[in-house]
Simulated scan of single mutants.
Amino acid sequence: MNASVSIDKFVMEYKDVPLGAYYGLMRDEAMNGFQTKPTIYWGDYCYELHIRKGKEAYLHVFYKNFRETDGHLHTLRLETRPEHYLHFHELLEPIRKVASRITFVGCDVAYDVRTSLENVIVIPTDMRREMTYEGTTRYFGKAHQRKTNGYCRIYDKRLELWEKQKIMLDHELSRIEIVYKPDQKILLSDVGRYPPEQNDKYFAAVVTDWDVLPRKRVEQIRDMRDGAEMYTQLIRKGVKETLANPYHVDFNRLAREQWVSLVEVPCTALLGAA
């Protein structure tokens, strides 16, 4: 089963940035007419700056992790959508010049399929991952695990576009979104060589024709889809075998095929080649 792949949020860090460079960024964003919105963030950083360029783009800036108690050079972290980095290239260029290195932290990888949410099945490989709900959205992971590797949510993207942006699609659209956060920091210049491998976290399928499946199997699939019953290991294996062809969503293949093009925009903006 094919799906379109995108990155919803891209997180990176500049290493060994002096405080003066952070203050310079604050000065430059004010002088260049960017909008700064004060935001309370119960996180891990001493300094925060939330910048917006009109209605087009936003940038979250976090400086000096609370664990960094020694010296005068600290980490500066950025979070935004990949394409938004292009809007802040000139603002960030002085930071790039003083940083010792630029690393990739993680991103949200989104797999979109043109079907209703009831046809999307996601089964965790680690059965300790419990499913929770908020409305029609399904989650694997607690709220405080939102930025951890493997956190997943499955939701009606068509509905979200309408509710948040008043965009009405003429077709159904569902999204499987999984956090990709490698154990080791990767140099941003090398990130294209490290596509996410998320098949080891979840098995996913999109059922396009329920009528061809045995009734008992349909019941089991829907129970597992909704988190009502995860059954025994043997039944789970049978469900996956039933869904393997042609319904399986191969996260690894999809990400691998598109990864270089997906990270090209933020890498170009942040590495000084824009």
Rank of each mutant, 00 (worst) to 15 (best):
E48I: 12
I121Y: 03
A273W: 13
I95C: 00
N149S: 11
I167G: 00
A99T: 01
T148S: 13
S116H: 12
E219V: 13
Q258G: 07
F203R: 03
Q258F: 02
S6T: 15
R138Y: 08
H171Y: 14
D170T: 08
P246S: 08
T136K: 12
R225Q: 13
G238W: 09
R81C: 12
A204W: 06
T115L: 03
V105Y: 10
Y58M: 11
L254P: 02
R129G: 04
E83Y: 12
V109K: 04
V113S: 09
K181Y: 01
S189C: 05
F66P: 04
G135W: 01
V109F: 02
N2H: 14
T148A: 13
Y45P: 03
L169N: 07
P214R: 00
P94C: 01
V122M: 06
V113Y: 07
L49W: 04
P94R: 01
R138A: 12
P82Y: 07
N65M: 11
G238N: 13
L117N: 07
I7D: 05
T125P: 00
I40F: 15
H171C: 12
R81G: 12
I95N: 00
L73E: 10
T80S: 14
Y247W: 12
E29V: 15
L187T: 02
R158A: 11
H89Q: 15
G43A: 08
T136M: 10
Q233R: 15
F10S: 06
Y58S: 13
D156M: 07
V61W: 03
I167P: 01
E197K: 15
L49Q: 10
V11Q: 13
R153W: 06
K142E: 14
C46L: 15
R52N: 09
R215W: 08
E79C: 11
I186S: 02
R215Q: 12
Q184L: 10
I235E: 09
V179E: 05
S100K: 12
K201N: 11
E172C: 09
D156N: 13
P195H: 00
T115Y: 07
R225T: 04
S100Y: 02
H87E: 14
Y151C: 04
S100H: 08
K164Q: 11
H72Y: 14
T125S: 11
Q198H: 11
Y22Q: 01
N199I: 05
M12V: 15
L59V: 02
E160Q: 06
T242Q: 10
L78T: 00
G227D: 08
F104K: 00
R52P: 03
Y22G: 00
D112H: 07
L169C: 04
D170N: 13
N32Q: 13
L161I: 01
I178A: 01
R81M: 13
I167T: 11
G20C: 00
A205T: 05
Y180G: 02
V120S: 08
M31L: 15
R67Y: 14
P195G: 04
D190T: 02
E48L: 12
